[in-house]
């Protein structure tokens, strides 16, 4: 069964993941992750940090690895970027999981019927 991780991506943690650092349990798991398995991040930070050029760079890095972003939403008159609601994270992960299962099913049925 595929593993999914929905995590709070705070500023420092996001930099550690993008830089390949691993000095705690979470970042060590990410550093050893098999990127054929889905990995989700749900960031949360102030808007000025979200708009900082480093953030764009780090998001580019993690996107390149195949990590899926669940983007934050503006709150407090756009002063902050809050993590999306847990229900949204759950539905996003479920949808991704269902889609993957469907693709696997289609893949196995087309193989068994002699199609490549």
């Amino acid at each position: 069964m595929l593993l999914f991780s929905a995590s709070f991506a705070f500023i420092h943690g996001r930099h550690e993941i993008a830089g390949g650092l691993c000095d705690d349990l979470l970042t060590t798991i990410v550093r050893a992750w098999d990127y054929r398995k889905p990995l989700f991040v749900a960031p949360s930070m102030s808007t000025c940090i979200w708009r900082n050029s480093f953030t764009e760079e780090h998001l580019g890095e993690i996107d390149g690895l195949g990590i899926m972003l669940i983007p934050p939403v503006p709150v407090n008159g756009d002063l902050e970027r809050a993590m999306v609601e847990p229900a949204t994270i759950i539905s996003r992960v479920k949808a991704s999981y269902k889609k993957q299962k469907m693709e696997q099913k289609e893949g196995s049925s087309s193989t068994s019927s002699g199609q490549v």
Binding site: G19, G20, L21, C22, D23, T28, R31
Partner: peptide, 12 residues
């Protein structure tokens, strides 16, 4: 270690 390798590569 993997962590110190990452630090050196990033100039930390």
């Amino acid at each position: 270690s993997a962590n110190t390798l990452g630090k050196i590569a990033g100039g930390l």
